[in-house]
Structure formats: C-alpha cells, structure tokens
C-alpha cells in the first residue's frame, strides 16, 4: 500500500465531512429521521400517503446541490471511468444491495457508525471490504 499524496485531500475531506455531519444532525434533530439516502429514495418506490413529500424534498436538495455550489465556486469536476454496461451492473447491485442491507454509506456508514450500532458497523465493514476486493480484482487481476 502506498498513499497517493497528490490525490489525498484531508482538508477538504474534513470540511465536506463536517457539512455532511451538520446535514445529518439537523435532519435527526429537526425531522427525527435518519439521513440514509438509499432508504429515503427507495421507500418512494412503495409510497405511503403522508410520507412522500419530505423524501422528495431531501432528494431535490441533493440534486440541486451542484447548482448552489456553482454560485460559490467552480463547477465541480467529475471523472466517471465506468462504461455503460458497468454502470448498469453497478446501479442494479447498489439498488438491490442497499435495500436488502437496509442502508448505504450514509445510513450505515455515517448515521449508524455515529450511533455505534453494531449492525451498521458490520454493514460498513462489509461494504468497504467488498469494495476493496472488487477494485482489486477489476484493476489488478483483470486489468479493467
């Protein structure tokens, strides 16, 4: 293992992390809800009356974030190397997996870890380990 010091951005990582923490904190303290994005989004596919508007509002907030960010700074640049087939496969796996596993990087990784939930800590260790292994296999064994 060697750290890529050019890519490593601890300052902006902590700053962005604090913003994510603030969003999570205000969501639980004001709305009484877990800011778990797969759950907020996924439950919209089986809508329950009176339980839709806040979910849509949270998702809209995420989607308009780049537009708001742009009014302060430069348009954020993304690099998406995956091709069409890989994106479809990845999307299906993330969709099914986060619903069966009842959470993703936000619900388990941030909220659950903050609550010291053994269940969420287990989930977080598992999906990060699965991510490590997947990238190792794709990049270093298959050379994709």
């Amino acid at each position: 293992m060697s750290v890529d010091w050019n890519a490593f951005t601890p300052g902006s990582a902590v700053a962005g992390g604090l913003l994510i923490g603030i969003a999570t904190a205000m969501f639980v303290l004001l709305n009484g809800r877990i800011a778990g994005i797969s759950g907020v989004l996924g439950a919209l596919l089986k809508p329950v009356r009176g339980d839709v508007a806040w979910r849509v509002a949270f998702i809209v907030g995420l989607i308009v974030a780049p537009l708001v960010f742009m009014s302060f700074g430069a348009w954020p640049r993304l690099q998406i190397d995956a091709g069409f087939a890989a994106l479809v496969a990845a999307g299906l796996l993330v969709g099914v997996g986060t619903r069966y596993g009842a959470g993703c990087t936000s619900g388990h990784g941030v909220c659950g870890v903050s609550r010291l939930s053994p269940r969420s800590i287990a989930a977080t260790v598992i999906f990060i380990a699965a991510g490590f292994i997947t990238v190792f296999v794709l990049r270093h064994l298959l050379g994709v």
Partner: peptide, 9 residues
C-alpha cells in the same frame, strides 16, 4: 452486493 456495485463504478 452494495460493496461490489460501489467498487465497479
């Protein structure tokens, strides 16, 4: 499954 999908894209 989620971790595998996360690692792909």
């Amino acid at each position: 499954l989620f971790g595998i999908g996360w690692g792909i894209a």
